[in-house]
Nucleic acid binder design. Structure first.
Lengths: 214, 214
DNA sequence: TGTACATCAGTGAACGCGCGTTCACTGATGTAC
DNA sequence: TGTACATCAGTGAACGCGCGTTCACTGATGTAC
């Protein structure tokens, strides 16, 4: 079928785009360069993607899906073990995904790209799944986090509701804070900040996990 | 004097570069575009900067100096108040600086730029002052943070020693962790992640501070 | 004070490059009778 | 099975743009006698 061929070529294009993303950053993803890498003429790619921005947009969505998949796999894997231990595994998987493919992590959580609209519904949707997994992991802990300040409580509740999972505001705040912390660690690690301080980023991450999830 | 003129023009060039940085990101800083904005021909700028990379490098160093200056001003201001309260003010100043000029914050802590060498000694040096201020603020708290794991302790000590301030490893770990947390919050805020969740980033930041510095 | 000279800011043309995207077209692959 | 037609992947040329950087040169500003 022609359709199978289309899908296959699209995947090859995206794979080449990811390779360019890895060296050169998001700005380094170039339609013409991808075409050259596939041994094909530049305009040929317009059969498969409407524009460069559309291509990059797909990379973003794929990355969100991939990250969410990795987290869900860990969350679903082996229901044994204490909830705290399972949450720990989840957070380690988050870092592992980021460290294994820093360019994709930066594509998701780095500075917003000119031309790409991070508020497009498809993208916002895709970004939700990872947070949902994190929320579930936290919720399994079962302890009672401190209540959020009055200004934040309704916002957190609205956010949970808009996501379909009615969420305890206190739990939501805890999830956001936890996310910010591990994102901070990962982001500094990817930026080489810990390396330039002579610090072992992995040990640092684990030390922080030990402190946060005693 | 000709020298005064040189300095003044260099400053104007940098100011125009910062304006371009604000809209368009680091890749949007263009020699020719700056020249046009100053009503001058492109090659003219090569009298003042050896290359585009040299220009951007100066922006980085300026930004580090500016951030460190803002923090030191807060630290030196009004020695009254409990140490925890003063540290709180320091961290609020960190966020305020980042939020007021997101492009410069991203220039410092965003993804490393292609062409620019973040390990150049001048840049590494400039990046140290802010951390020193944070360390001083934490040290004034006077309480005893938990000891770091054996793998990290010598690294933290070596890092402190290389900086001229012999530092308690436990304190160093605490500083790094605190930095990672506020960087995570700030970085997600600048990325618009909290906004797209309907959360008030400032309230979030303050809630986290309240939790971290009771 | 006036003149000769050196310094140096800025110009305009040019080089070579890469970019995203359009367009008219060729040629192979699939489909329908 | 053979033939007519439609579909569509891919090509090559072109458009218009911007980029960093070099080069030889003009002309104004400063300095030295």
């Amino acid at each position: 079928m022609r359709e199978r061929f289309r899908v296959q070529v699209r995947d090859e294009v995206k794979a080449a785009a990811l390779r360019q993303l890895a060296d050169g950053g998001p700005e380094g993803v170039s339609v013409n360069a991808i075409a050259k890498q596939l041994g094909v003429s530049g305009p040929a790619l317009y059969r498969y993607f409407a524009s460069r921005d559309a291509l990059v947009g797909e990379l973003v969505i794929d990355a969100y899906r991939d990250l969410a998949g990795a987290l869900e796999a860990v969350a679903a894997d082996g229901p044994g073990g204490a909830p705290a231990e399972r949450l720990r595994a989840l957070l380690l998987a988050y870092r592992a995904w980021a460290v294994a493919q820093p360019h994709r992590y930066r594509l998701l959580f780095g500075p917003p790209l000119p031309g790409s609209d991070a508020h497009a519904p498809r993208i916002v949707d895709a970004s939700h799944h990872s947070m949902a997994t994190l929320l579930a992991g936290l919720s399994a802990l079962g302890d009672a986090p401190p209540a959020p300040p009055p200004r934040l409580a309704p916002q957190l509740e609205a956010w949970g509701r808009s996501r379909g999972l009615p969420v305890d505001p206190a739990l939501g705040l805890r999830a956001v804070a936890l996310w910010a912390t591990i994102h901070g660690l990962v982001s500094l690690e990817l930026g080489g900040n810990f390396a330039s301080m002579g610090l072992d980023a992995e040990a640092l991450f684990e030390a922080e996990l030990a402190r946060l999830l005693p």
